[in-house]
Design a protein around this nucleic acid. Structure first.
Length: 357
DNA sequence: AAGCCGGGGAT
DNA sequence: ATCCCAGGCTT
């Protein structure tokens, strides 16, 4: 066993994380769900989502039999909703192709939607003690410092180089512990800002530390300007205080989630409302609320709410097409049965509190 | 290779 | 406001 993995494992036994929710009882299914939720998402954020998800869907079969709406309702607020859709798809595939048993061959696991090279390695090493490397954000950071790797870790050559090193550093035993150990090291010692090099088990061999250049690695990702887009949200409220929601396309942002009818311009939004009013006899008040900004990883979205109260429920369905009149729209995500994007949750809260800010 | 896909924690 | 987080998929 190499000195690196020996040092990492020795540190892990004393200082690693051994009581995370998905570590309590280790099964491929439980590890799989955790790894998907943890993609691009911090542990602290995941924990409450994981607990709730596992309570509702304790087995592959339970997940496969659930509706997509139920799954996405559990994912609402977590982001990257394709993860939830793919998890659900994979569960159905596991029922159809593997009799409900999570596959144990690397190729079969890799073929499931939403599982790439790193996630497949993590699941099979942690849950089934197979020898596979991982290369997530933690490993990239640890290795780029240990090896003083110049340049962004996301570029092709560096990625290929790091995969090679990640496999080389993986020991010949204790595969589950090593996978967990290298991630724990990155998450608690070799952190992005203010790493604790004094307590690091591999500092003696760390080139960045030797050169006193820990701060230089990993190199920052080249940044690009985020475009600004606009969206008009038509907020329809009926006499009972229910709000009108429509399910979004599976393709594009917030795929499969429920949101307010959305228009790209002020004009198209008001035209739609005029079309409704021309056929309606009831009275209602239209108020254009102040806009607010929601920022994605790749663009800013300025949201302009157009709030109309006193809408006739059945009449609206005729004009606006398919939709649902929801009562408690994800104000409490514990009770929500529809998945709603974060800014919709925010806007609903503002409406309920009558805060036009 | 670059773009798409979220939301929040940390700074 | 910026950067990044237990990445993968599409073009």
């Amino acid at each position: 066993m190499s000195k690196f993995s020996e040092q990492v494992l020795g540190w892990f036994d004393l200082h690693g994380r051994h009581d995370l929710p998905w570590q309590k009882t280790i099964t491929p299914y439980r590890v799989w769900v955790s790894e998907i939720m943890l993609q691009q998402t911090q542990v602290k954020t995941v924990i409450p989502y994981y607990e709730r998800f596992m309570r509702s869907f304790p087995t592959v079969e339970a997940l496969a039999q659930a509706s997509q709406d139920a799954v996405l309702a559990h994912w609402a607020g977590l982001g990257y909703y394709a993860r939830g859709r793919n998890l659900h798809k994979s569960a159905m595939k596991i029922m159809a192709d593997f009799e409900g048993r999570f596959p144990e061959s690397y190729d079969d696991v890799l073929a499931l939607p939403g599982i790439g090279r790193s996630t497949a390695g993590a699941i099979l090493s942690i849950a089934l003690q197979q020898r596979h490397a991982i290369l997530d954000g933690n490993v990239k950071r640890v290795l780029s410092r240990y090896l003083a790797l110049e340049g962004w870790t996301g570029n092709k050559n560096n990625e290929s180089f790091l995969w090679h090193k990640a496999e080389e550093f993986t020991p010949i035993s204790r595969f589950a512990d090593y996978t967990q150990a290298i991630m724990d090291l990155g998450a608690t010692v070799c952190t992005r800002t203010k790493p604790c090099c004094e307590t690091c088990p591999v500092r003696s061999g760390c080139l960045a530390n030797q050169q006193d250049r820990v701060r230089d690695f990993p190199a920052k990702k080249p940044k690009k300007e985020k475009p600004i887009k606009q969206a008009y949200f038509l907020v329809l409220e009926n006499m009972e205080g229910k709000l009108f929601l429509q399910q979004r396309s599976q393709i594009g942002i917030w795929g499969g989630l429920w949101s307010f009818p959305e228009y790209e311009s002020h004009e198209s939004c008001l035209n739609k409302m005029k079309k409704y009013e021309s056929q309606s006899t009831s009275l209602h008040s239209l108020v254009e609320w102040n806009s607010f900004r929601h920022t994605f990883s790749h663009y800013h979205l300025d949201i302009f709410p157009v709030v109309v109260k006193g809408i006739d429920e059945n009449h609206a369905l005729q004009v606006f097409g398919n939709g649902e009149w929801a009562c408690k729209v994800a104000l409490n995500s514990q009770q929500a049965t529809l998945g709603v994007p974060a800014p919709v949750t925010k806007l609903v809260r503002l409406i309920r509190e009558c805060k036009n800010v």
